[in-house]
Amino acid sequence: MIGLAIDSVLALGIVWMALQTVRSDSLFQAMLMFIVFGLLMSLAWARLHAPDLALAEAAIGAGITGALLLVTWRRLQVHGPDDSNGPRLMTRWLALPIACASALLVIIIGWTALQLPAVPGTAGELTLQRLEDIGVSNPVTGVLLGFRAYDTLMEMAVLLAAWLGARAVATEFRPGVLPGPAHAEVPLVGALLSLVVPISILVAVYLLQAGGSAPGGAFQGGAVLAAGGVLLCLTGRLEAAAQASALERVGVILGLAVFSLTGLIVMATGGPMLALPGVWAIYLVETALLLSIALTLVLLFAAAPGLRRAP
């Protein structure tokens, strides 16, 4: 009963935040509402018994997306004031029935699917039965790396493509692309950094290691590590560099390369492609994925080809 009350309040909060994201007059406010929306979503994942998703949503959905949105907003301000009187795709009176109809469609889909009797032998059940074969006990990690490894490989490819795309459309490099190190000289910030950055590394490694048996994994860990990197960029400890160093180039493709190579070697030795031979291979691939995810996210945030330590 009390659980139902919590769910209702949470649901109302989520819908209210979504509404405010769309309705609020100032774009800045809308972005803040969107970030809070992400945090509430992560509570909803926890309520829906999906702690892996709660971690990912809090770190990636709210944290990294929020940082990206805010830094882009700041860069847009630099170029000129935001003119908010552009044309709409359609009028409110046309948009409202379309939105209502699509929401109704989602309700009908959900309602129908909830009425369906449970079918035995779904992919998820088979996964749970065969988790021991791949040596991890967290079913989500099992699916990501054991049973649907193609998805995970392509996901890394998408992340790399997003970064390459962002590089391709960016203008020629200007040193001032990062927001200036406004707080670099504040002593408190240095003290906080010297604690929080090591902790972010520790938490990332913990999440990676825990991902086999508990909530966690390469994506959540990568996002936490990236958060540490974003902090270093924001406080002027890391600067945008005109060229990516060799290490950064390797780092960005490391996840994709290690994953593909492991998969190909398995295929060469007679197994199916991407079938990881044992727990050590899962951890090897996850470590490479974590490093690549973290580096790519930080580079996307910095909108720069590379990073270097500030003098």
């Binding site: 998805d151 998408v158 960016a170």
Partner: peptide, 30 residues
């Protein structure tokens, strides 16, 4: 605990969403 397959799909989806958003933001700046 929900079925692990949709969980993995949504986890993938969250990362894809942030990738797409980051690319879109770069396009917007340009």
């Amino acid at each position: 605990p929900p079925d692990p397959v949709p969980q993995a799909m949504v986890l993938t989806g969250i990362v894809i969403a942030v990738s797409a958003t980051a690319f879109a933001l770069a396009l917007l700046l340009r």
